[in-house]
């Protein structure tokens, strides 16, 4: 019974959202507002379950973890944002999260976004027994990365052989990349659409297996 009611409710809200394709209407607006409330309410419940309860409340109740009162007090300072005379106190927790987050993130970004990418871009064009399409691919990968970087380098005018030709090749590579990404995204969205249609025609109406 639970499942049947659930499928009917799910089907109702699926159709409510699709009704927007015709025009905005009260049923769509209701679904849109409900999803905001439910998702934030769900996040609150889960945050309490996985963060506040095991990391703060339980250790404090068990005693001996009084140091955890510092992050709790810092966190509570966020709420001063609602009282304009002391709203500046909310900068303290923001400063802590921002500063430490930036510090932790710096070496990690350097590693993942810069060093690893540079390392992966430095590959030999040819190795024994490599098929021609891989050799061509490696050439495109190495020179294409360089050309696309030149295109994004705006400190020099895109003129001459290195910057001019480089940036022109770069934009071709970027367009190929954007086209491929777009095609990939379209396929992802279409498969989601197929999933919803399967839900309506299969789970709900039992018209398809």
């Amino acid at each position: 019974m639970y499942e049947i009611i659930g499928i009917w409710v799910g089907a109702f809200f699926t159709l409510a959202i699709y009704s927007f394709l015709y025009k905005e209407n009260p049923v769509y607006r209701l679904a849109e507002h409900l999803v905001v409330g439910i998702s934030l309410g769900y996040t609150m419940a889960i945050t309490y379950d996985v963060v506040l309860k095991p990391r703060l409340i339980e250790p404090l109740l068990a005693g001996g973890s009084w140091i955890l009162l510092i992050p709790a007090l810092l966190g509570l300072l966020y709420i001063t944002r609602f009282i304009s005379s002391i709203a500046w106190l909310s900068r303290y927790p923001i400063a802590f999260v921002l500063g430490t987050g930036m510090g932790v993130g710096f070496p990690l970004t350097m590693k993942s976004n810069v060093l690893r990418q540079l390392e992966a871009a430095m590959i030999p064009f040819y190795q024994e027994g490599m098929p021609w399409h891989m050799v061509l691919g490696n050439v495109v990968l190495v020179l294409g990365t360089l050309a696309a970087l030149i295109y994004f380098f705006f400190s020099k005018p895109h003129k001459g052989f290195f910057f001019g030709t480089g940036s022109r090749i770069g934009i071709w590579i970027i367009m190929l990349g954007f086209g491929a990404t777009f095609g990939f995204t379209v396929m992802g969205r279409i498969s989601l659409l197929i999933g919803r249609i399967q839900y309506l025609l299969g789970d709900w109406l039992h018209l398809i297996e």
Partner: peptide, 27 residues
């Protein structure tokens, strides 16, 4: 092949640019 090579080249250049941007903003 398009996904593996030219697409990856473009993505890598963008990722490098984003990486430098993040580092500069962090500092």
């Amino acid at each position: 092949w398009i996904l593996r090579y030219p697409n990856l080249a473009a993505k890598r250049a963008i990722m490098l640019g984003v990486g430098f941007g993040i580092l500069a903003t962090n500092l």
